[in-house]
Design a protein around this nucleic acid. Sequence first.
DNA 1: CGGATTAATTGACGATGGTCAAATTTTGAA
DNA 2: TTCAAAATTTGACCATCGTCAATTAATCCG
Lengths: 244, 244
Amino acid sequence: MVEQGGGAAGAGCMGCPLRQRGEWCVLNEEETRFLSRHLKKRRYRAGETIFSAGEPSHGIYCVTSGTAAIRKGDAEGNTVLLRLAYPGDTLGYRGLLLGENRRYHAEALGPSKICFVDRAVVKLLLERNPALGQQFLRRIASDMDEAHDHLVRNATLSNRDKFIHLLRALLNRHGRTATDGGRFMELPLSRRDLASMIGARHETLSRIIGRLEEDGIARFSGRTVYVARSHSLLNEIGPSTLLD
Amino acid sequence: MVEQGGGAAGAGCMGCPLRQRGEWCVLNEEETRFLSRHLKKRRYRAGETIFSAGEPSHGIYCVTSGTAAIRKGDAEGNTVLLRLAYPGDTLGYRGLLLGENRRYHAEALGPSKICFVDRAVVKLLLERNPALGQQFLRRIASDMDEAHDHLVRNATLSNRDKFIHLLRALLNRHGRTATDGGRFMELPLSRRDLASMIGARHETLSRIIGRLEEDGIARFSGRTVYVARSHSLLNEIGPSTLLD
DNA sequence: CGGATTAATTGACGATGGTCAAATTTTGAA
DNA sequence: TTCAAAATTTGACCATCGTCAATTAATCCG
């Protein structure tokens, strides 16, 4: 299950399509080889846990393919899906930087490949290449922005509008253009998870979906969503960031 | 209005009570003197703007005394009070790190003293003392945690419970213990701002406050709040972080 | 001190959201 | 394929929230 080296089979990180993206893009060839030798790549099945709240942070994870979900729970046992992570995204830097235990739960949403980089390796690379630290700073800062945007929307919009926002963000990642010019996608999430992302109950989300269909804005069938181009009036909410 | 050197008059940062707190605590004597020579300390009156969304980020701000409010607006013109900043807190590192324009609006809530550190000075200190970078990382990471906790609560709790949480957080900062063992405080915020922090209209907040009084949980009079010790049953919500 | 402006409260009422329960569909494992 | 478990949808009903409008404080300047 665990193999050494990331990216394309046998080529290690050198051939990894993500070498150009994410924070690692600042590494030179030698550093990349070093990373390549020391990371552990692993496949996850749908629903499999990557790490859980409460456990110590031994390193960071880097999504190579697939989609991961970051969940966070509160004292009362409620659980919220905070965000999704896609290829090129880095997970778990928070616990690593602060030397704290994990506060989130991360799991693969579908079959995924995710690389693990041990704390010691990260530390070494950070010392060797200060630009990497910069990259992480930028990443965290932009994650902050995302979280704050999310906060503002949650405080401001109705559940319906929050869901439309979410749909738009998901369409950006998972959508395809249909032959008739409309857009469709396979939702990567259950209704429950979608509901938790907008802070509503799943029953409420069901009704919101019903209303969207009545209004001719979108059609839902299981996890398939279709949005007519003319009704890409998801623009009724305004511009969006990639994912929120 | 602008004077050189921070902290106690004439002593610069060396005598600043914040030298032990915040990210600057890792600076040695020489570095602190350098910082002291190059920062600009300024007084702000109540309501005065520290920086606004859209303007370029020339440096960071460090609250020496008083309270600052961080606001963020969305496309529709709604405004949300994201958080409060207290002595020892650093403002504006995001824009500085990302080299982007400010995305927030920061203003003094009451008479405050706030130091400004130019981007170049920060850069120099960061190069000279890598531990400072670590400090910033920790700060950002913990701000992230705060934002995420906030997100979970907003998605999970009723407005009433969100407000109780907010009250608790504010009591931690602004509360005093009364002679009878209860706690009271002077709210630093208007009802409108309080409402925006929990994502509700001010009319709704008025009614929540009314209900809290009916239930004997707290008494409000203008900006003064009193919470009987026996009713510090604000514990009905569970533990809290300092401010959220 | 007084008048004007802004903030806060209150009422009425419709819209939205949550809860409980039941029916239906989907999914997963044998 | 078939059955059981889990997810989703729907209905009924009530609580909460937002909106509009009208009052009633507070506050700010001059």
